[in-house]
C-alpha cells in the first residue's frame, strides 16, 4: 500500500516547480497516492525555531495534527529537507516528551498524538515496493550519465531524529537514481551544508560553501547534481553565473532526484518543465537517452 499524507511545503508551489511536477509524475506512474494535508501551513523554517522555541515546534505540529485527524493511518511525506527536519523534530519531541506535547497541544488548540512517522521521499522511494514499481516503469535508461547525489544536512542530520543509518555516506539516493540507468559518482561533499537560508542574510560567509560543493562534484566527474530539497536545489543552481564570476566555479545542471527518474520513465520535456532550470541540461540528457537506446539495440 503506497499511500501517504503529503505536506508539500511552501517552495513546492513556486521555486520547486520542477521537483513537484516530476514527483507527481513518478507517483502517477507507480500508483503511489499522496493526499495533501487539508489546510497545511508553513513549518516555520528557518525563522520560527530560530526566534522562538515553542513556535518552532507548534507550527509544524499544527499541520501534523491536521494530517493525523484527516488520515489517521497514513505516514506523512514531505519533499523538503527543512520541512522534513522541522516536522520530524516536532513529532519526535511530542512523542517522547509529555511536557512538550502538552505545551504544543495547548498552543495549536488541537490534539496531537504523534502516532505516525514523518518521511522524506528518499525513505519512501527507497522501499522495496517502490523500487520494484519504479524499475518496471523505466522506458528509456539514461546510460552513462554521471550523477552526484547531494543530500545536504537536514535529510540526514541529526541522526537521533532522522534515524539515518549512515550519516557520513548515505546511499539511499544513489540506489534510487541507479534505477534510471545513470552512474552515481563517489564524492566527498554529499552531506555538506549549502548554507540554507543564510544564503540571504550572510552572503559573503555562505557563498563559498556552494563553490566547494560544485567543485568537488565536478572534480569527481559529475555531469549533473541531484538534490532532495527545494532550497538545496535553489542554492546550488540559481547563482551559478555569480559563482562563475566571483570564484570561477564551473557550471553544472542541478536537478531534483525525481526528475531523472521521471525522464527515464519517459516524461516529456514540458511535462516536468525541464526548461525552467537555470543551467541548460538538454545536451547531457539527450546524450544519455541516445546512449541508452544504442545499448538497448545492441
Amino acid at each position: 500500500m503506497m499511500k501517504y499524507s503529503f505536506f508539500p511545503g511552501c517552495s513546492m508551489g513556486s521555486t520547486a516547480k520542477c521537483y513537484r511536477l516530476s514527483l507527481e509524475y513518478v507517483c502517477r506512474q507507480i500508483g503511489m497516492d499522496l493526499y495533501e494535508i487539508d489546510g497545511w501551513n508553513c513549518c516555520g523554517a528557518t525563522s520560527a525555531h530560530v526566534m522562538n522555541e515553542v513556535m518552532g515546534l507548534a507550527l509544524p505540529a499544527l499541520s501534523l495534527a491536521k494530517a493525523e485527524k484527516n488520515f489517521p493511518h497514513l505516514d506523512i511525506a514531505t519533499g523538503c529537507a527543512a520541512c522534513y527536519s522541522r516536522l520530524k523534530t516536532a513529532a519526535h519531541h511530542c512523542k517522547n516528551d509529555a511536557g512538550v506535547r502538552y505545551q504544543v497541544e495547548k498552543t495549536i488548540g488541537m490534539p496531537y498524538e504523534a502516532k505516525r512517522e514523518v518521511l522524506n521521499f528518499m525513505d519512501i522511494f527507497g522501499t522495496e515496493e517502490a523500487m520494484t514499481a519504479m524499475q518496471e516503469k523505466i522506458r528509456r535508461p539514461l546510460k552513462g550519465l554521471k550523477v552526484a547525489c547531494y543530500y545536504g544536512c537536514l535529510n540526514v542530520r541529526p541522526a537521533a531524529i532522522t534515524g539515518a543509518p549512515d550519516r557520513e555516506n548515505p546511499m539511499t539516493m544513489e540506489n534510487i537514481i541507479s534505477l534510471s540507468g545513470a552512474d552515481c559518482i563517489d564524492w566527498s561533499f554529499k552531506t555538506e551544508c549549502c548554507g540554507g537560508a543564510h544564503q540571504n542574510d550572510a552572503t559573503t560567509e555562505t557563498r563559498p560553501l556552494v563553490d566547494v560543493i560544485i567543485r568537488n562534484a565536478v572534480a569527481n566527474g559529475a555531469q549533473c547534481i541531484v538534490t532532495a530539497c527545494p532550497l538545496c536545489n535553489m542554492n546550488l543552481e540559481m547563482r551559478q553565473k555569480e559563482y562563475e564570476r566571483i570564484f570561477g566555479t564551473p557550471r553544472i545542471p542541478v536537478f531534483a532526484f525525481t526528475e531523472l527518474i521521471a525522464i527515464a520513465m519517459g516524461a516529456h520535456w514540458n511535462e516536468i518543465a525541464l526548461d525552467a532550470h537555470y543551467t541548460d541540461a538538454s545536451k547531457i540528457i539527450a546524450e544519455a537517452i541516445r546512449a541508452g537506446k544504442e545499448a538497448d539495440v545492441k
Binding site: D38, G39, W40, N41, C42, A48, N52, V54, M55, A58, L59, L62, K106, T107, I108, G109
Partner: peptide
C-alpha cells in the same frame, strides 16, 4: 495564502 492564515497567527501569538 493558505486556507486559514488566522490559525497560524493564533499559534504564533500563543507560542510567544
Amino acid at each position: 495564502f493558505i486556507k486559514n492564515p488566522k490559525e497560524v497567527s493564533n499559534t504564533m501569538e500563543k507560542s510567544k
